[in-house]
Design a protein around this nucleic acid. Structure first.
Lengths: 346, 346
DNA sequence: CTGTTAGCGCTTTCAC
DNA sequence: GTGAAAGCGCTAACAG
């Protein structure tokens, strides 16, 4: 199905001009006779002319496109980051192409190749839970294409990163549980491959330590972030001879799954067991009781990451700085951990 | 910042071959000496060669890219549609570029131009609530680029569309409310510009009619789908001299906002007022009581739309059929409209 | 099996 | 002010 789109040559022929002149008029160069320019612009409009960015990119060797590679698109987190990033990108005249990897390493590798093949001028990345090898991203560095990680970052690459104070946030969350009198605090952690899992785990551990609570091995479980496993492990925890009296979950979706299981068992929150999540997803304020959680500035993460990327692109490769931007979190206390709080609401 | 990416010429020079041979080896053509091929493939790998899709697209005049234009990215609806569409697209070897318009007509027009400039081979569109003029999409038709609408479709364009049985779904929802004994059923409708608003409104009206309930004008309100307005109108409804005993909302986010207002007023659901939404968003099962809602097969919408688009691309322009695919909805009854139902849960 | 050539649509010197 | 020509990276005839 061969279609023909209007080109500058079509316009040039129609007006008996050279394509150079048409190009100049269309791109707003100065050296064009005002009348010629007007004729060109009018005809272009009339013929639905739309500049071919592919050809432009080929000649300028910049695509004016940023790539975003995210691990999933199911929870509201990544779409929101994308909104933030897109806002900054389009202000700077860049288009954005997004790909999600469905938490699959293979797909992530394939997606990164698509970004390369489409000659993105830079990429924003948050890796899958399976990703342990980062060669497919190191290629970008070798080629001199700026890369910025956010949220789920690659520890071994020296590039800019945008994260939140995961350790601090986790510490405060667990401290809060301790201060409400909880003693057997469980932690449903993420996979060890993710830095955020390890950081949040460390926050948990240090909070216990600071308040001289013993670390109870059976109360700390790393899992793969799937809904099914979350359910299984929460059930397991609740059926222990000495079940936990509180649960700190790696993120809100996990915490919410936990709450469902807890409710189904007929236990009450926060008395029987208190729950704290991480992120402050939209659902956290809707569920009953409201979910206490460590709020992250999600859209800001996207904005900061995009800005950092744009900053790199203005610089020489040698000038790239591997700075890590750490955004603040805020503990939001709701009914899942505190009886004095509104049971739900915004 | 001028970077140089490996090209087939680099490989050709290194191996003392012509770029044609390199091209043939890389694209898997048959007529290449196995040894030469291996040498080429190995070197390409070693040099991080990545085919330049921009150049390819220029010569083949197909970009192997589908565009998706959605009105917003905040609710889970559109990201889920994108997941479905992307699944089908990538199976067929197409990349996807997504743009959201933030419910702004201006942005939508700009986004459609970006799609054109990037020479997408087809687009999937759901329009903003502001869109009343469709010229920016008609250009695609004129250029012979297939276009498929979904969810928020353009009524005046004769192209394939994927929707759900909005009328039917709304009718069943309202019928359900009537059957639980409700008599003063309000409807918080969407803007009149959207076909889905009108269809759902008609379902509402016909249900009233069928059961001989009077249409009470003050109970039907069209609004702009913003959170703030939802709150204001729900409050208004509740403060009427004769407030409604049920509310059918255009979609789940609206219904959920309504529920917050109702709870804040200390009213109980479903006794004081029953609520029904549309979509079955994730949050609907979490909120307390669970939200009765008309479930749509969200991901299927994306899959069907993408498939319809691919079908067009295999055909001559003259063969395009403007068929409308209507997917089934299902009424999911939860605690917001029925006391016998579980208060929440999946 | 491999090389040569033309051309996709555009910008950009360099002339005139 | 405008045109001619080169070239971005690649594929696809057409030769050999």
């Amino acid at each position: 199905m061969k279609r023909h789109q209007t080109t500058i040559i079509d316009i040039a022929k129609e007006l008996n001009l050279s394509k150079s002149t048409v190009s100049r008029a269309l791109t707003g160069h100065s050296n064009v006779n005002p009348e010629t320019r007007k004729a060109i612009l009018d005809l272009a409009e009339k013929m639905d002319y739309q500049r071919n960015m592919l050809a432009l990119s080929l000649v300028t060797s910049r695509s004016n496109t940023l790539g975003i590679v995210v691990p999933e698109f199911l929870t509201s987190f990544f779409p929101q980051v994308v909104i933030g990033a897109q806002e900054i990108a389009s202000k700077a005249g860049y288009n954005v192409i997004v790909s999600h990897s469905n938490e699959s390493y293979e797909t992530e590798v394939a997606n990164s190749k698509v970004m390369l093949a489409n000659r993105v001028d830079g990429i924003l990345v948050s890796v899958t839970k399976e990703t342990r090898n980062f060669d497919h991203f190191k290629v970008f560095q070798r080629k001199g294409i700026p890369i910025v990680f956010f949220n789920r970052v690659c520890d071994e690459m020296s590039v800019p990163k945008v994260i939140v104070d995961d350790y601090e946030g986790a510490f405060r969350a667990v401290e809060h549980l301790i201060q409400t009198g909880k003693k057997r605090i469980a932690h449903l952690a993420g996979p060890d491959s993710l830095l955020i899992s390890r950081k949040r785990l460390n926050g948990y551990l240090d909070a216990l330590r600071k308040y001289n609570l013993p670390l109870i091995d059976e109360l700390v479980i790393s899992y793969d972030l799937t809904v099914e496993k979350a359910k299984i492990y929460v059930k397991h925890l609740l059926e222990l001879p000495e079940p936990p009296d509180a649960l700190f979950a790696i993120n809100d979706p996990t915490a919410i799954e936990a709450m469902q299981v807890i409710k189904a068992k007929g236990l009450t929150m926060p008395e029987d067991i208190a729950v704290v999540g991480f992120s402050n997803d939209y659902a956290s304020s809707l569920i009953e009781p409201g979910l206490t959680t460590v709020a992250q500035p999600i859209r800001e993460i996207g904005k900061n990451a995009a800005q950092l990327l744009l900053d790199q692109m203005d610089r020489e490769v040698s000038d790239w700085k591997a700075m890590t931007k750490i955004l603040k979190t805020e503990l939001i206390i709701r009914g899942s951990s505190s009886r004095n709080m509104p049971t739900s609401g915004h």
